[in-house]
């Protein structure tokens, strides 16, 4: 054989080895899935639960009632029924008694007094909590009157967070 025949054979063998390795990789390759995600039901719970580290109240410039509002649109809750079921409303571990529970909505009035270091009242605030369970969303609204009330409530929620839940009572 001529010298170039050896060279050609050598090149063909090298190319063959390379192609063999690649062929093996491609034939043996398998599709895979690592991990899994389920983000579909993050907000759909049996009753209702909302938590956040703060709440900021906004005042509409054209509003003459001096109302400060915090609004939140959340995903819809499927099985709330204020007519057939009983619920307990809890805000930051405080049970909100005397809440008005309707077929698809909840209304609560919360009164919070803020004291200074001498034990005197600095601010007497009143907070209206409204939760409306609508067909396509859940509307949470917190309302208070006056900038001072709004500022103290913002401070309270900033210090303690906000944990609002509606718990079904089974008898």
């Amino acid at each position: 054989m001529k010298w170039y025949t050896y060279l050609i054979c050598f090149i063909l063998i090298v190319v063959g080895v390379f192609c063999g390795i690649e062929l093996y990789k491609e034939v043996k390759a398998e599709s895979y899935v690592n991990g899994s995600i389920d983000i579909s039901n993050k907000f759909s719970q049996e009753a209702f639960n909302y938590s956040s580290t703060s709440a900021v109240f906004y005042h509409d410039l054209y509003d003459e009632t001096n109302t400060y509002t915090f609004e939140k649109e959340l995903l819809k809750v499927e099985d709330f029924n204020g007519e057939k079921k009983q619920y307990k409303i809890v805000l930051n571990d405080y049970v909100l008694i005397n809440s008005e529970i309707n077929a698809g909505s909840i209304l609560s009035i919360v009164n919070i007094d803020f004291y200074n270091t001498s034990g005197n009242i600095l601010c007497k605030s009143s907070l209206k909590i409204s939760i409306q369970f609508l067909s396509n969303k859940t509307q949470l609204t917190l309302e208070t009157i006056g900038q001072e009330n709004a500022s103290f409530l913002e401070q309270y929620f900033s210090d303690n967070g906000i944990r609002l839940s509606v718990i079904e009572i089974f008898k």
């Binding site: 054979c9 063909l12 063998i13 080895v17 192609c19 063999g20 491609e26 034939v27």
Partner: peptide
């Protein structure tokens, strides 16, 4: 050598076909 070269050609063709 020739045999290995032929195998190399076959493997290369198989890879090209598969790819």
């Amino acid at each position: 050598l020739v045999f290995l070269a032929i195998i190399g050609v076959c493997v290369s063709l198989a890879y090209a076909y598969y790819h």
